[in-house]
């Protein structure tokens, strides 16, 4: 009897431990930032017909409603909204339309945040931790309907100034992208 109890307790304990497996937070996302930045190109023109694929990027953030929601908070807290408003732009360009000056792929946006861009986009290198930058990237992509509806934020508690990200239709990205459409 006592053996049974011990056995069952051990089994129950193992099961409880299993239940502790939680959604993982990636504080050092893979691939590392240097690899992402090295694989990003800011031109759609490839001399010698030498196309470069989409830049490397971790997939987790694009699939996690939690990450996107964190990204939305950080978008305000790092003052991204100061220039890009709630996606419509102001000092900086709009982010809710389909025109991507420096590319729409997660790796492109990540690189834009970390490196900055010459016409006024500040460089947040050493200011925003990598995993937070990826969360912001995911949120920025949700602004123009590039994320699945079950991941994009719904209407926020704040002053209603624009349609919620969740209701944004998918907009085919134009401009410099990691995956240019092939000619037909």
């Amino acid at each position: 009897m006592q053996t049974d109890l011990a056995l069952w307790s051990a089994v129950a304990g193992m099961l409880m431990l299993l239940a502790c497996s939680r959604e993982e937070r990636q504080f050092r996302p893979s691939p590392p930032a240097s690899e992402v930045i090295n694989s990003v190109q800011v031109s759609g023109l490839n001399p010698g017909a030498n196309p470069v694929g989409a830049p490397a990027a971790p997939e987790y953030y694009q699939e996690s409603a939690y990450a996107v929601s964190q990204g939305k908070t950080l978008f305000n807290e790092y003052n991204c909204s100061g220039c890009h408003a709630n996606g419509g732009g102001g000092i900086g360009p709009p982010l809710m339309d389909n025109y991507w000056i420096y590319g729409s792929e997660p790796g492109n946006i990540f690189t834009t945040i970390i490196q900055g861009r010459p016409n006024g986009m500040p460089s947040f290198r050493n200011r925003i931790p990598e995993f937070q930058a990826w969360e912001i990237v995911a949120y920025v992509r949700s602004l123009s309907g590039l994320l699945p509806k079950d991941v994009a934020p719904s209407r926020s508690d704040q002053f209603y100034v624009k349609p919620p990200e969740q209701s944004m239709p998918y907009q085919v990205p134009t401009g410099i992208t990691g995956k240019p459409e092939p000619p037909k």
Partner: peptide
Amino acid sequence: GAIVAGGLDPRDKSAALGFVG
């Protein structure tokens, strides 16, 4: 005139510190 000069998106009425509205 930021909506024209900056090519802003009119769906966000808070764009350009709210002037786009």
